[in-house]
Amino acid sequence: MDKRQQLIHSAFELFYRNGIHAVGINQILQTAGVAKKTLYHHFASKEELIAAVVEYRDEKFYSWLASRLELVKPGYDGLNELFDAVDDWINNRVDLLSDFHGCFFINTCAEFNDPQQPIYQQCQHHKKKINSLIERQIRALGILEPATHHVTDSISLLKEGAIVMAHVQGDLTAANKAKDMAWIVLAAYLS
C-alpha cells in the first residue's frame, strides 16, 4: 500500500469508528505512520483527505454490493441477496467492509449537513449508485414505469431503515425484517 492509500485507509478506519470531526490530523498521521509533510504532499487539506476517504468507501462498498448481486439472477434472487448482504454486513460477516458502525455515508452527511457541500454531494452520489443496483433488480421483475421508481424508493427506504435500526438500536435482525417487508411491498405490484 502506498503512502496515499495508507493515509486514506487509516483515516477511513478512524472516521468510521469515531466520526470525522472527532478525529484530528495528528491522530491520522500516528495511525498511518506517516509524517505531516507526506500528508500535505498528497492532500492540500483535511477536507481533501475526507473527500478521498468518501471516494474510497464508495468504491469499496459499491464494488462489494455489486459483486454480491452479480452472483445471483436479477429480480427475486437479487433482492433477496441485497438484504442478505446487508445482514452479513451489519453482523460483521464481511471482512472487506470493516466492523459495522452504521452507514459511513449517513454518518458523514450528519457531520456535513449542507446539501451544497461537495462531501455531502459525494455521499448523495453514492446513494444514487446503490439505488441504481436496486432498480436493476426491480426492472428484472417486470415492473414498469412509473412504478419502477416508486418501488425502488420503497426498497431503498427499507434497506436504509434496516441499517439505521441495526446501528442505532442494535437490532441485528433488521435486514431480515426489512426483507420480509420488501416482499409485502412488491406483492402490490406483482399481483
Score class of each variant (00 low, 15 high):
Asn91Trp: 02
Tyr120His: 15
Arg93Gly: 11
Lys3Asp: 00
Arg17Thr: 11
Gln5Val: 00
Ala110Cys: 12
Asp180Phe: 02
Leu29Met: 06
Asn18Ala: 11
His21Pro: 04
Pro118Ile: 10
Leu97Thr: 05
Phe15Ile: 04
Ala32Ile: 10
Asp58Trp: 13
Lys37His: 11
Gly78Lys: 01
Val23Tyr: 01
Trp183Tyr: 12
Glu59Asp: 15
Phe15Leu: 02
Glu81Cys: 09
Arg4Ser: 06
Glu70Pro: 00
Thr38Asn: 03
Glu59Phe: 09
Ile155Lys: 03
Arg68Cys: 09
Ala85Glu: 04
Ile130Pro: 02
Val168Glu: 14
Thr31Asp: 13
Lys46Ile: 07
Glu145Ile: 05
His21Glu: 12
Phe112Arg: 11
Glu160Val: 06
Leu29Asn: 05
Asp2Glu: 07
Ala35Met: 10
Ala52Cys: 06
Gly33Gln: 07
Gln30His: 11
Lys177Asp: 02
Asn107Met: 12
Met165Arg: 13
Asn26Asp: 15
Asp171Asn: 14
Asn107Val: 09
Ser154Asp: 06
Ala85Asn: 04
Ala162Ile: 01
Gly102Met: 08
Asn107Gly: 10
Ile20Gly: 10
Cys109Ser: 11
Ile90Met: 07
Asp2Cys: 05
Leu65Ala: 07
Lys60Val: 14
Phe100Tyr: 15
Ile90Phe: 05
Asp153Glu: 10
Thr148Arg: 15
Glu59Trp: 08
Leu69Cys: 04
Thr148Ile: 15
Pro146Asp: 01
Ala147Leu: 12
Leu172Gly: 06
Cys109Val: 10
Ala178Glu: 00
Ala66Leu: 11
Ile8Asn: 02
His41Arg: 12
Ala174Trp: 03
Val185Cys: 02
Gly102Cys: 07
Phe15Gln: 03
Phe61Pro: 00
Lys46Asn: 04
Leu71Asn: 09
Thr108Leu: 12
His167Cys: 08
Gly78Arg: 01
Ile20Gln: 08
His21Gln: 14
Asp87Leu: 02
Leu97Asn: 07
Leu49Thr: 05
Asp58Leu: 13
Tyr16Asn: 13
Val94Arg: 07
Ala11His: 03
Thr152Met: 02
Ile134Gln: 00
Asp87Thr: 07
Tyr16Gln: 05
Lys127Asp: 15
Ser63Leu: 09
Ala162His: 03
Gly170Met: 04
Ser191Thr: 13
Ala44Leu: 09
Lys36Trp: 05
Ile106His: 11
Phe105Gln: 03
Leu39Ala: 04
Ala175Trp: 00
Glu145Asn: 13
Val54Asp: 04
Pro146Lys: 10
His41Val: 11
Asp77Phe: 00
Leu39Met: 14
Ile8Ser: 03
Gly102Phe: 11
Lys73Ser: 14
Leu82Asp: 00
Leu65Ile: 11
